[in-house]
Design a protein around this nucleic acid. Structure first.
Lengths: 250, 250
DNA sequence: CCGTGTGAAATATTTCACAGCC
DNA sequence: GGCTGTGAAATATTTCACACGG
């Protein structure tokens, strides 16, 4: 494609998706360093804490701009602020959770929300069994109230992220209602493909998929012979893990 | 790198990681088609159901072998079986969950486990408040019992996946105990970077990261001017969403 | 014909390795 | 002397587009 825009001083206008996915990790690691009272970190130390290679870390940060000092490293507080800004954490984010079953309860009680600047603006469910119940200090409301709450929060200038924790069968319907209410960012925990209009962002977290991916690798490790031909596969290259995390409480 | 191995008939020995991550999606979509009573699907239809492009789907499947019929499509049941096999779902997988807080409760009750061939072999926690409690038909045991349970399950010929749902501060310690007990696949819900020995697989799911990634994109959408030049961005290229899902219940 | 399977081209991401600055 | 920032090389992934088989 064409690129050309006269990117202003700090950092390109487009951060690669792969980099974006790691920024929260760095942010977390930086918080830990700050708590430990450190003023600066080297790319090596930060990378280690985040579980990535230092070259990758430096390349990632280079997309945000130049916030390090050669021969020294990065100023912890400054870098933290820059990453947080870039992630959009300067604005206040509100979260609405629909589906207050087991998972919804757990999400509603997740301490990480508040501590990372996300505040829970509302809990919704249509099951008579839970509507009216108070969970983590909030009363569960019928889904019909969703639009009103979103509108109200939007009036505050805040932005809204919708979290879907309903059974798969209802996921699309509830998603539609969220979108109709004005939600343009959705985190979906239901194992269902969501169809959304252009401009709406959906991210899915699926437990079963994660387990199956682990199963795939586990099988590969132990499988003496997957099928006919022995063909000693001889060491899968590349070390073990996937992206790990730093931080707080579950 | 070099290629050479005399790959036998069905599919290469190495499936790209990106493909592996999508196989569960296809599996799910196939189940839906099977339930709907369809015998065959085209790459186009299956891709649509899985929320990916048909070319990508075909390329992905080509890594497993040739299970389609030109001019017709894929036989639903057959393809489902092949993918399931490749994912290692032929063997019986057992899951041990450590940390029976809000999230642990939700995970223990997750219906998707059983329906996808994963059975919960044990629940563990060291908090006196929950040890002994019965959750989803299983008694919560002290973490000290972990090794015994893993050993017992391993004796059955089953493989084990450890699920970590403890606070971040305890994640590494519990992970070490899991590894010591013989677990080589770990699904980590705690926002913490886990250090594990070579050969152990870790996948992390972090709610805060997901939210921050959504925040990043949301900000990009609404931000009227990140910097100087107006330059109506006119559609970020590439449609909306991320990988979605198909399937069952939460 | 239709739709899979797949080389080859286009992109994206990671890794190297080193020049430049504190 | 140490460590960032970054072109350039190596990989990985996605997308095209079309030959081939049923």
């Amino acid at each position: 494609m064409e690129r050309a825009v006269a990117e202003r001083a700090a950092g390109a206008g487009d951060v690669p998706e792969a980099t974006v996915a790691r920024l929260p990790l760095y942010l977390s690691a930086l918080s830990a360093f700050a708590d430990a009272g450190l003023r600066t970190v080297s790319s090596e130390a930060l990378a280690q804490a985040a579980g990535v290679g230092s070259a990758k870390l430096r390349k990632d940060l280079s997309h945000l701009g130049s916030y390090g000092t050669r021969g020294v490293g990065y100023e912890v507080a400054e870098l933290h602020r820059h990453i947080a800004d870039r992630l959009g954490l300067a604005t206040r984010w509100h979260v609405v959770i629909v589906g207050i079953g087991n998972l919804g309860h757990a999400l509603a009680g997740y301490a990480g929300f508040a501590s990372r600047g996300f505040s829970v603006a509302g809990l919704f469910d249509d099951s008579p069994a839970v509507v009216g119940e108070v969970v983590s200090g909030l009363r569960v409301r019928p889904v019909a109230d969703l639009a009103a709450v979103v509108r109200e929060v939007a009036g505050t200038g805040g932005a809204v992220i919708g979290v879907l924790a309903v059974p798969a069968a209802q996921a699309q319907g509830v998603c539609d209602r969220m979108v109709a209410a004005g939600v343009t960012s959705v985190l979906n925990f239901a194992p269902a493909v969501l169809r959304v209009p252009e401009g709406v962002d959906v991210r899915g977290v699926d437990l079963a998929s994660e387990l199956q991916i682990l199963a795939f690798h586990a099988q590969r490790k132990s499988s003496p012979r997957p099928a006919g031909p022995p063909s000693q596969d001889g060491g899968r290259r590349r070390a073990p893990a996937t992206a790990p995390l730093v931080g707080e409480v579950v």
